[in-house]
Simulated scan of single mutants.
Amino acid sequence: MGSQPDEPIIATKRQQVVTIHDVARAAGVTIGTVSKALNGQGNLREETRERIRATADRLGFRPNDLAQSLLRGRSFTVGLLTTDSYGRFSIPLMTGIEDTLSDAQILVFFCDAHDDVARERRYIDSLLAKHVDGIIVTARRTDARPAVNVGNTNIPVLYAYTQVVEPDALSILPDDAQGARLATEHLLSHGRRHIAQVSGPQYFESVQLRMEGMRHALNEHGLDLPEHRILLGPWREAWGYQAASILLDTDSQLDAIFCGSDQIARGVIDALRERGVRIPDDIAVVGFDNWGVIAQATRPALTTVDMNLHELGQYAGSRLLAMIAGKKEPGIVRLPCSLVIRDSCGVHSVRNTEETERRGENKDEE
């Protein structure tokens, strides 16, 4: 006998979606009773409610999100619109937002506009078409940006790590001035009196606020911040290196440098070390950001200001939930920063060994 032909391939019928009608039939109750049981409504006996839920689980029933949205008048979705394509600031912020919103069973749509106005408008239109319950707008800098236009939809919009000038808007920002005061007061409390600041471009609001915060802390101790100790340039490691070299050539009294970012601080430390300056014995260094991949890898490990972006995101999520519920409190809210103490300032503290390392590891992953 010859070889048998291959068995014919028979396409299997796609498994049908289990409906509320199927659950009602299997449980021996009406559709209305199933709806009440699964939505926690009605005056049903607990035994009946649990039996219906068990039947729904056994059949693999999944509620129809669209139907639920129509029933409740909400989509239980939120848009997160960002221009921070690098993710340095938006990712820790986003995880905090999602921590809060996921507890409220809300799904977050992440939209990266890449600083493209047309692309941002398309994202906004798409989010509005999906009937999101709210929108959170964030960026890679805290300076003011144009407000998001949601037309006459009345969808609440919240700004986090960015701001708008409209008086009826809510913007949530880190307190840059408070963070700078915290760093400066720490250096002063450990005997440093000749402190310079190396930071980013002056047109950044964060640079101006950190300068004001440092100056305020120095003035409270009867000290000033002379112009030759303020060096502003790009947000780059190379600028930190260049600025530190300038300071060493012009200021023999210098005993501390407060940097506007961890990247700048790393360049500063490289320049000091190459010139034979002992850190922190001769000159202490403090950064800003607590970017774990830089702060913990720098030698010595970098003392730095943490903007607590994860916590800021959690707070933003809770405020958006309040706005969705109808509570509106516009204005600018600035949340406090914290100081993470490591070796570069000369006062390493065991208080940071657990919490600091946890934050640093999370940011390394980001």
Rank of each mutant, 00 (worst) to 15 (best):
P174E: 10
S69Y: 01
G179S: 08
Q68G: 11
P174W: 00
N43F: 02
R62V: 14
R121H: 12
E46P: 00
R72Y: 11
T153I: 01
N64Q: 07
A147I: 13
L81Y: 00
F89N: 08
Q68P: 07
L44R: 00
L127C: 06
T83V: 03
D112W: 00
E47Q: 10
P63M: 09
T55P: 03
D84L: 10
I155M: 09
A139N: 14
F61N: 13
A160Q: 10
G42W: 06
Q41V: 07
G60P: 03
L182Y: 05
R119E: 09
I136Q: 05
R88H: 12
I91E: 08
G151R: 12
Y161Q: 15
A67R: 01
D99C: 06
G73M: 02
R45E: 14
I106D: 05
F61M: 12
I155V: 15
A118M: 14
V132G: 00
A183F: 02
I52Y: 10
L93Q: 10
R62K: 14
L66D: 11
L80C: 14
Q178H: 14
A139V: 03
N43I: 01
D115L: 13
Y161E: 15
R145G: 07
S102L: 11
N64P: 00
P92M: 07
I124H: 09
A54N: 14
P92D: 03
E120P: 06
V117M: 10
N152K: 13
V157E: 04
L173F: 00
P146N: 01
A144I: 08
L158I: 08
A113I: 02
D115V: 04
R53P: 07
T48M: 05
L70G: 08
F61K: 14
A118G: 07
A113R: 01
D125K: 10
L44I: 07
D115H: 11
L158N: 09
P167E: 12
Q41D: 02
D175V: 13
T55W: 03
L71G: 12
A139E: 06
D168P: 01
D133A: 03
R140L: 07
A169F: 06
A56R: 08
A180V: 07
A104M: 05
E50A: 15
V165A: 15
S102M: 12
Y123I: 02
P174L: 11
P63K: 14
L107M: 12
I106W: 02
D99G: 09
A118F: 08
N64E: 03
G87F: 10
Y159L: 10
I136T: 04
